[in-house]
Structure formats: C-alpha cells, structure tokens
Amino acid sequence: MALEDRNRVVILEDRVENVSGAEFPLSFDGQETAFNMESFRDSFDIKIIRVTPTDIEFDLIGVDASIANALRRVLIAEIPTMAIEKVYMINNTGIVQDEVLAHRLGLIPIKADPSEFLWKHDGSVPTDQNTIVFRLDVTCEVNRAAETGETDPKIKYINSAVYSSQLVWDPKGDQGVRFESNPIKPVHDEILITKLRPGQTISCELHCEKGVGKDHAKFSPVATASYRLLPEIQILEDITGDDAELFRSCFPPGVVDIVEERGVRKAKVVNPRKDTVSREVLRHKQFEGKVRLTRVRNHFIFNVESTGAIPPETLISQALDVLVEKCEISKTALAAAVKNGEEDE
C-alpha cells in the first residue's frame, strides 16, 4: 500500500475501503508502523474551529480512532451532570399522569455545576451537598381579565401551560450562598412541561442528583457529540466545461469552485472540509476514473453540542480528565497484572 494511502479511508461507490488503522508493529512488511511517541508529538494537534455558548467544533489530528472514540463516548456517557431524579408528588390533578410528568421533569437540563456536588449513593440521605431541590406549585385559573369571547387558552386562563421557568429553586443549607452569583435553574425557560385547565393543580418537590449518561440519558451533558473524518477530493484528471458545472453541483456549495485556466473552465476543489461525502459524484459516469474520494483517518472533526448545563469547552476538558482517570485505572490494573504475572512465574 502506498505510503500516503495508509492514512486514508477510501470512499468507493459501494463500500468504504481501508477502514482500520495500522498503527501497530509489523502491519506492513519492512515498514515501521508501530506507535511512535516522537512522531506522535510532531503530528498531534488540536485546532479549535468554532466555540459558541452551546457548540464547539474542533479538529483532533494525529490520534487513532480509538482515542477519538473514547473521547466521544466519555462525552456522551460519563461526564456527570445534575438532573431531576426524584419527584415527590404532593398533588397532581392535571391530565399528565404522575410518572409521565416525573419523566418529563427529569429530562429538563439543569444549569448547575456538578463538580460542586457529591455523589448521592444508594441509601444516603439527601443533603445540601448532594441534592438540589426545586418546587413546582402551579394552579390553573380562569383569567378574569380576559374578554368573554376569548378562545386562546393562553389568554383565557392563567397557567394554562407550565414551563420549565416555573420551577422554583429552593436553596438548602448554604446553597443559597454558594450559588449566589450563579443561581441554579433550568437551562431553558421555555420547555413545556404540561398543560393545565382551570381547577387543575400541580404541586411537587423535585430533587436533583448527580449522575452520568450511561445510567440515564437525562444525565448526558451533550445533545450531540460526534466526529467525522476530514474529507478529501482528488481530481485525477481535469474536469472541464459543462462537466465542471455538474461536478460542482455534486458537492455542497463552497466545496468545488470553477476556475478559468487558459480559457478553459475547470473544476477545482476549494474546501473539501465542507463536503458531506454524499458520493453523488460517483454516480456520474463521466467522472469515472477522474475523481477519488478519501478521508483522512487520523483527522477527526469533532462536533459537540452541549445541553447547556456545562459550557462546551469545559465539557471537552472534563472528558479528557475522565479519560486520564480511566487510563490511570488501567495503568494500575496493568501494573498489578504484570506484577502478578511475574510472581506466578
């Protein structure tokens, strides 16, 4: 296999080729393929492309898929957040049943720094160190101010819809002081919890606890955490004229441009990163043999969207922390195993 191809995933019309990495010794005869700290140091890079309050896009370059995937998996499943775990229903005469209401409440992302809280283990008592308490007391009434012919329930009734903004944080212990600057509340104010009609009441106490995404999706701090490999488009043979137009239309806007060279309109790849790898170009007979689609195997374009509970950049560093911690565990376990092995001998 050609040296430069070793690092590429090849996109064919009907299959993906060369999917697995070969960063281990003796993958290829006579070639040095084993992991090498030196070269890793040279090639490894993290480029942050875009950061918004909820999203982050960054490139992770020069690592194996297992590392990138571990990061992704940790993001989804192992970063702790706070979420409503227990609902003490005092009264609920609304149409949504207790357990369904509780389920809905549980899925509301809570803006609270989980590192400020302890794990609440089975059997332990709720304290101000491991539990956040919210209260939800809503009663729907007829709005006397509304005109008589009014049909819109939002005007006709008061509290006809219950939103996440109506969750009231009830600080316990020193929580009021600890979070004075950053009061605990749901991330979004407009999450519809339920609808009520006059006479219906909901009264409950909600306890948030610390948890991780692998126990329940509500604890997952990310909405999406995924990566894709950097696409590459190689034009093997010039594509000109009308074919160039067609070629351009096979990619999302901005990927391919048409340049004029010596009076010939020619397709030129400008920004392969924008390509969605829809393989549309491979469907056209006229491009057969003229184009090659590949992806860079060790260039991961990460896209992480936070639920809002934890800022996206913090998420990444937390995920790396978790990853390091896991490595430590593995390391000690390995060391112990090696030691045991030696003893056995």
């Binding site: 995933v9 009907d14 299959r15 993906v16 080729e17 999917v19 697995s20 990495g21 898929a65 297992s66 990138a68 995937n69 571990a70 992704r72 490999l229 393989r279 992806r295």
Partner: peptide, 8 residues
C-alpha cells in the same frame, strides 16, 4: 471501535 463501517 470508532472506525468507519466498511459498508454504507
């Protein structure tokens, strides 16, 4: 595995 799946 984190690697691409060989088939579409």
């Amino acid at each position: 595995t984190g690697e691409p799946v060989g088939a579409y």
